[in-house]
């Protein structure tokens, strides 16, 4: 390679040292971009603490030092009260929405992990007749646009008697091709020697999977869980279609329905509700964010 003669040439440039004004410009643009990404959330939180009057008067910052308003904490209990009450569980509907979302999300994520880990292991580490065909069949489902199967799936929910019930929100999503693919890629990187060694120790496939493969694949499993968690929490169209009663709604549907009714005018309450939906996810994201990057890069998934 021609690396030797050009070291003296490229050495000073390798570190991407730009003239300082270029760097200032780069940082300025990046900060503007970061602000644009975060500002809607900050504005949402700010609005959730404003009075209706301040919203009408376009008062951007009604609090000291520029104004003399106090934080309208009352917006949060007001929002919860305005959304309604669930007679079945004797709790505010907001609580029911969150409970539904948590039930659906946890059940989906646990289910997806189980089905995906098993399938991924079989595809990565077992010799089965017709394995390639099965793998292609699984990947082929990626070609099916969700809209294509929407109508028949709704009809199936009626026919199964799952309409307006939890199984409709969970069961159709218990297999995730992306998760199978991601885990399979990861399992295949685990050296085969480890399996042969385990085999000599008398371990079968299942014991090998649980005692060696899974502990080694913790990052991939966590990433899979997190991505599925985010998607399940975000699901809106399907729950809107297959639930009827307000107490079967998940948070996304509840928020949209509130926006389409009272929340459309009582913006401060809508933003309080939105903040309750968003903030837990943001906190969760900040704690676990390094896994997301991995997941996105490995699979290039678009939700």
């Amino acid at each position: 390679m021609a690396s030797e003669p050009n070291t003296w040439l490229s050495a000073p440039q390798r570190t991407h040292t730009h003239p300082s004004w270029t760097r200032v410009l780069i940082y300025a643009v990046l900060i503007v971009g970061a602000l644009a990404s975060a500002l809607p959330f900050l504005y949402m939180i700010m609005t959730s603490f404003k009075s209706y009057g301040d919203i009408i008067n376009n008062n951007f910052w009604p609090w000291p030092p520029f104004g003399n308003e106090t934080l309208q904490m009352q917006n949060y209990p007001d929002a919860i009260e305005n959304v309604g009450f669930d007679k079945a569980w004797q709790v505010p509907l907001v609580v029911r929405y969150f409970a539904n979302s948590i039930i659906v999300t946890v059940a989906s994520v646990v289910g997806i992990l189980l089905t995906s880990i098993f399938a991924a292991y079989a595809l990565a580490r077992m010799e089965l007749p017709g394995k390639n065909f099965i793998f292609i069949l699984i990947l082929a489902t990626l070609m099916i646009p969700p809209d294509l199967t929407l109508v028949p799936k709704v009809v199936m929910m009626f026919n199964f008697g799952w309409y307006n019930a939890y199984p409709a929100l969970v069961v159709p999503f218990l297999a995730s091709v992306f998760s199978i693919f991601l885990l399979r890629q990861f399992f295949m990187q685990i050296p085969k020697d480890l399996f042969d060694a385990a085999l000599i120790d008398g371990a079968g496939h299942l014991r090998y999977l649980f005692t060696i493969v899974l502990p080694l694949s913790k990052p991939a499993v966590v990433t899979t869980a997190l991505l599925n968690f985010i998607w399940a929490w975000d699901s809106f169209k399907w729950p809107l279609l297959v639930t009827r009663d307000s107490n079967m709604r998940v948070v996304a549907v509840g928020l949209q329905q509130f926006m389409a009714s009272e929340g459309g005018t009582k913006v401060q309450l809508l933003m309080a509700f939105a903040t309750m939906v968003v903030v837990p996810v943001l906190v969760f994201y900040f704690i676990t964010q390094k896994y997301f990057k991995e997941g996105v890069i490995t699979t290039g998934i678009k939700g």
Binding site: P40, M44, V253, L255, Q256
Partner: peptide, 22 residues
């Protein structure tokens, strides 16, 4: 920067769309 730029993708789309409507 990367973490901040990624925020909108991670957030519930219904919630962020509600905020943007406003």
């Amino acid at each position: 920067f990367r973490v901040v730029f990624f925020l909108p993708y991670i957030t519930s789309s219904v919630a962020s769309a509600a905020v943007w409507s406003f």
